[in-house]
Design a protein around this nucleic acid. Structure first.
Lengths: 334, 334
DNA sequence: TTGTAGGCGTTATCAG
DNA sequence: CTGATAACGCCTACAA
């Protein structure tokens, strides 16, 4: 049996409320009695029942987090930052994954809501195009923060992908490249537009022609990536660089180039995005844009705690955009 | 305001208990009334208050999980399996990390315990040598399952590292290697002993001499790994293969060999352990022992649910050992 | 300074 | 079939 306030009260022949107060160091309880109570509590290894406290206080000090895929390094890095920050603030994390399925995502939102978490953070699944679920929550004044995979209508934390795309492309231009291709992601991801816009902006800024046939969209699956390079290779016009939507795309691309005896970093320069572990593990090491996932985690928690703690209208649209930076490695540097 | 049973009762001029029963499809409530109540509940978007239910039922349908590092792929893969299985069984996961610190681990155990989770799963931190915290919990009859980083006195789920080491070494022997070095992990990890024992067993089985100077321990940090190869290279006697404690060690080793113009897969064969993404991303691709982390996650949850649901003494020592298998790639195959 | 009483939202027991 | 009533463990006016 776990010990309760009542147990302590009974043993000390006092009342539950006195015990409760003593344990909270309430000033109006005599020092003597307080000590006695606290000692006994320690002795009996008293643990306040969180259910009762939650019920009373209507708060669980728990936040729900939904990620598409727990095992994607980018997300686990974010979670790491979240965990750190949440704990520093006395919160715990109820973490679950959507598996990139809208249905599952919806279900998880329900679960978390039912579990009475104090707020929900989510990186939306690839499939999600309808944000009704989130809107419903917000309508109820329930704190929601989107991170990484976001939507302009919600409080969000994500990296500055536009500038990331710009930096990547600018770097290629400065390395002397004239014909820079871009393998873009699927349209429904916000990041796709942003990275592509950064790419376009750099071309404009440095007065290079924009050629739509140099922009190829991939659904990010391996086959699609390979198909994308082939498309580029089959054009009559040559290219001397590729800015890839992410590091995994870059990896796949480079494998194909290798087969064709095209040397990355010399014949063709490649830049990835995400600065994932793969970028330093592959050969050649990949120049990539860092997104500070750990920081994304920290900022997301801070934002939601902010909206939980301020009784102010939580619907103020808030967006935190984290700086991206280019990490130069051998794939663009000979 | 969120709606409660009382609200519904009031509107329908009935009692709270009737509403409660109707919502649970209790057989002794008239079909008509049940329908009316359920309809209104849906309309008002009634959500049962989990705090109250938990308080009443003394169970939270929540499991606590502690991992050393959320962003290590091996663990996030395990978590993925856990999440899947937990949800299928109606449980949620409170996930946190120890950062490989005993202090932090202890704190997290306390947090989870206070949060009234129904059980705790943990992969112990590297620093942990004293299992007192876990013993305390077990003494109270509190369900604890260790996974991956385990201890023989507790219910555990981990991979068959002995056989993994055996398979890896046997493979090297069958590839014709005669002088096989082993870069082992730090002693306090159980896996270290197991993998090394597997290695020794294979040498014995195939009648190869055991040479202690071929076994070098590393603390798994990069410097330590590099130091380890150097030690091997400086021996008077040559070696033709290295079985590494894990894939990251293998990666570091291979980098050093490359610098020395020693060709992996030809001059020296290398086997890693873990079959992590890095093993297919590096060049050459690494032969490695797969540990089925996703399965570890599944089995761990099943084990703890088992001990939660069976009122039988939870202290039955239980151990689930998952099969390992060798994945052959270019680092041992020319 | 301390105790009593009521309530948080649900469930379960016991009458009716 | 339905409705009080108590209880889960804790907190907090309000009294004393």
């Amino acid at each position: 049996m776990t010990t309760t306030l009542k147990d302590i009260a009974k043993q000390l022949k006092t009342s539950v409320s006195t015990v409760s107060r003593a344990l909270q160091n309430h000033p109006r309880i005599s020092a003597e009695k307080t000590k006695k109570i606290q000692d006994l509590a320690r002795e009996l290894d008293y643990q306040p029942n969180s259910f009762a406290i939650n019920l009373k206080k209507k708060t669980s000090k728990t936040l729900g987090v939904i990620v598409p895929e727990l095992s994607l390094h980018f997300f686990s890095e974010i979670l790491s930052g979240m965990d750190e920050t949440a704990h520093r603030n006395g919160y715990q994390l109820l973490i679950c994954q959507s598996g990139e399925k809208v249905e599952r995502e919806k279900e998880q939102i329900q679960n978390l809501y039912k579990a009475n978490v104090d707020g929900i953070l989510v990186a939306v699944s690839k499939e999600t195009s309808n944000f009704g679920n989130f809107d419903l929550l917000r309508k109820k004044g329930f704190p929601v923060v989107l991170f990484s995979r976001t939507h302009p209508n919600f409080p969000s934390v994500h990296s500055d992908d536009i500038n990331g795309g710009f930096l990547a492309t600018k770097h290629l231009i400065q390395q002397g490249c004239k014909t820079i291709a871009h393998i873009a992601g699927p349209w429904h991801l916000y990041a796709t537009k942003d990275r592509q816009n950064g790419y376009l902006k750099a071309l404009e800024t440095y007065h290079l022609p924009i050629n739509q046939s140099l922009i190829i969209h991939s659904d990010l699956e391996k086959e699609s990536n390979i198909e994308a390079v082939h498309q580029l290779l089959n054009r009559e016009q040559n290219f001397d660089a590729i800015f890839c939507f992410n590091d995994y795309v870059a990896y796949d691309i480079i494998q194909v180039l290798k087969e064709k005896q095209i040397i990355t970093g010399k014949d063709v320069l490649i830049v990835g995005f995400g600065n994932q572990p793969i970028s330093t593990q592959m050969e050649p090491k990949l120049t990539s844009v860092d997104q500070q996932p750990y920081q994304i985690g920290i900022k997301s928690i801070e934002m939601i705690l902010n909206s939980i703690n301020s009784k102010i209208e939580t619907s103020i649209k808030q967006t935190e955009i984290l700086e991206t930076m280019l990490i130069v490695r051998n794939s663009t540097y000979h």
